[in-house]
Write a protein that binds this DNA or RNA. Structure first.
Lengths: 377, 377
DNA sequence: CTCGCTTTAGAAAGCGCTTTCTATACCAAG
DNA sequence: CTTGGTATAGAAAGCGCTTTCTAAAGCGAG
């Protein structure tokens, strides 16, 4: 039914092998032959059969990008950046596919299986990981298998997998280089270890809290993200480290002034209300991210509180809309685009892995109008 | 190297055919045999080879979703909705892949070729289309070919392809049902015509403008989207229709009070400034979408104008952050999630096509705090 | 007890491509 | 002229799966 290589070959008066070689361009073909083939391709509007080609060549041109929530610009920006590195003009025929896990560990695993099935060329996992021992082990095992099959693994915005989860290789006990004709098949590219582009969430949260402390705030509420997520933990750790450094006494209240919720607006709204109930005297609220911060602002306003006169509010991530909020949101900027682009290049092997396999991306405090000194009462 | 069907078959003591049948479940296999096979699959951690399977079955489980800007929540929400319909539990092993065209016609075509190459099961094109005769023709031709190869085509948030572009079928002049053994191969599913889930942009823009007119505004600026985009044109048409209905004289200024730009914040900022220069007396500004509206607000504020006391502002789309802007943005709600989900079901054939192949999604005016009667001077 | 039907499983032919291996020209050097 | 090397093209063997087509049981009915 569809036009095949053989059809093109017939039309051009050459063999299928020649057409294949012209198309992949990895073998010398005489100029005249080449143009004859190319013309036939044009005339027949031939389009390669991807699956057939992937089967024969044992690799595909799919690159999977796993995100926790594609409707969240945080992920949209990273995904867009990853994909921008695979533009047809840049990286040949790579197809970046974005998979939405919804933050569910099961879906994450399912999508990885799907990608493994497709023999994906690379996989980029973005955003926070769930900290559950069983899931981490399952994830590590799956990633190891994929890596062994030649898939490049890149983590972007999440910490490296724990050492012990990565260790414990398959069943094949290839100690030394016994088993195969050593140094030939093995050297070609090896089971390439996962590469990480991590965000300095801890440092960012720390600087943000220091900013608030410097303004004079002492009663600081924290609407944190979902529990058991790496990002949530790191930001919280940075926050508490800053508190402890400033005055260890502040730590005693920290637990009480922290509520957890999802990374969405309503969590911010509800969280702020809960915080206000627990501590009507708080003078500042830190949010898990900018979206949550917007919810916090809405709740505060609905309670008749002014920002920043009555309560200061700060977010995290510096998404595009943050600067446009009223008042403009103080937040921590993460260079999401740069990080995503780098992850994309790493995934394609167009950039070499950083030493140790982990690159940490700096975060930057963006002090804007939503934070100010507390009322002097 | 990797575990194959044959390995599983050997381990289970059956033939490869049997394993394949157990896995796809479309052929009777005795219970005992089935569980033996399943156990072997488990033990060997077998993962199907997608390309091989796609090649043999002549279909793949890829569904392409083309978006103009994945970092824009407008598209993120739709993509997320499409994908939510393909959750592993819902639709078997479908893999929705999101492709970011950046609004470029060439990239759109390139991605379609890539998807055609992969023999995608379906393609969903979202968002406004570029109105260029040549591109439309090329697009229609490509989509026709894909449809002929069995790929389902769904348009979401863009108008149906022009009749004449869709007509003019391939080279095969299958008039009537001559040529093949009529009524057998042909009936199976046929070259399924594209299905459209269109947004009522015109109606929405019209109601929005009527809202402004009812408040008493007469000098209304319009920061429109990119020229040559269907969405831009439709919203502008709705706007002008409302003006004309109210008072034909208003139309004479309309052209002068319209500027075009991209769908981003800075276009809104710059556009508002330009509009203010052209007509310092305007009392309201309509924006191409909510993001642009935020830019408009910023520019207005920077000029010392209050919203809505001095100038009313309205957006379009009702993205999540719009309700949180200060003041809350008057806008037109498009049920993006519902539309995307429907497009997803349509793409999977889980919902039958609407009569005429076109479903139009209603839009709803969300009057909020950013619009008010003009000053009385 | 045989016939014919149903149920279940295997053999084998591809799907369309890549890639090794082989063959044919063609040319410069001996 | 041979000889050997180099450039170019074809033949053909799979890649791992799906899916006919065929075969072997198993079983109730005549």
């Amino acid at each position: 039914m569809a036009v095949t290589l053989a059809d093109v070959a017939a039309r051009a008066g050459v063999s299928a092998a020649t057409v294949s070689r012209v198309l992949s361009g990895n073998y010398p073909v005489a100029g005249a032959t080449r143009s004859r083939v190319l013309r036939a391709v044009e005339e027949l509007e031939y389009v390669v059969n991807g699956p057939a080609s992937a089967l024969a060549a044992a690799t595909s041109d799919l690159v999977g990008v796993l995100v926790n929530d594609i409707a969240d610009p945080f992920f949209g920006i990273m995904a867009s950046a990853v994909q921008s590195e695979m533009e047809p003009e840049k990286a040949g025929r790579k197809l970046a596919v974005v998979c939405n896990t919804g933050g569910s560990p099961e879906r994450e695993l399912t999508y990885l299986t799907l990608l493994q099935r497709q023999r994906a060329a690379a996989v980029v996992l973005t955003g926070s990981a769930v900290e559950d021992e069983k899931h981490t082990a399952a994830l590590a095992a799956r990633l190891r298998r994929m890596a062994e099959a030649g898939t490049r693994i890149v983590l972007c915005g999440r910490p490296p997998l724990p050492e012990d989860a990565v260790a414990g290789r398959g069943d094949a006990p290839r100690s030394g280089k016994a088993g195969r004709d050593a140094g030939k098949d093995e050297t070609e590219d090896g089971p390439a270890a996962p590469i990480t582009v991590a965000f300095d969430n801890r440092g960012g949260a720390r600087r943000l809290t220091e900013h608030l402390l410097a303004l004079g705030h002492r009663r600081i509420g924290y609407v944190a993200g979902p529990v058991e997520r790496t990002t949530t933990r790191h930001r919280l750790e940075g926050h508490r480290a800053a508190l402890a450094d400033h005055d260890p006494a502040l730590l005693s209240d920290a637990e009480h002034l922290t509520v957890h919720g999802a990374y969405d607006r309503s969590s911010g709204y509800d969280g702020a209300l809960e915080l206000l109930r627990r501590a009507p005297d708080l003078t500042a609220v830190l949010a898990a991210n900018d979206t949550v911060a917007l919810g916090v602002c809405a709740a505060l306003r609905d309670q008749g509180l002014r920002i920043p006169e009555d309560v200061s509010v700060a977010g995290f991530d510096d998404l595009p809309f943050s600067a446009d909020a009223a008042p403009a949101l103080t937040t921590v900027r993460i260079p999401l685009h740069e990080a995503g682009a780098r992850a994309g290049r790493l995934a394609l092997g167009r950039e070499s892995a950083p030493p140790g396999g982990v690159a940490t991306v700096r975060t930057e405090l963006m002090a804007r109008a939503s934070t100010a000194p507390p009322r002097a009462d």
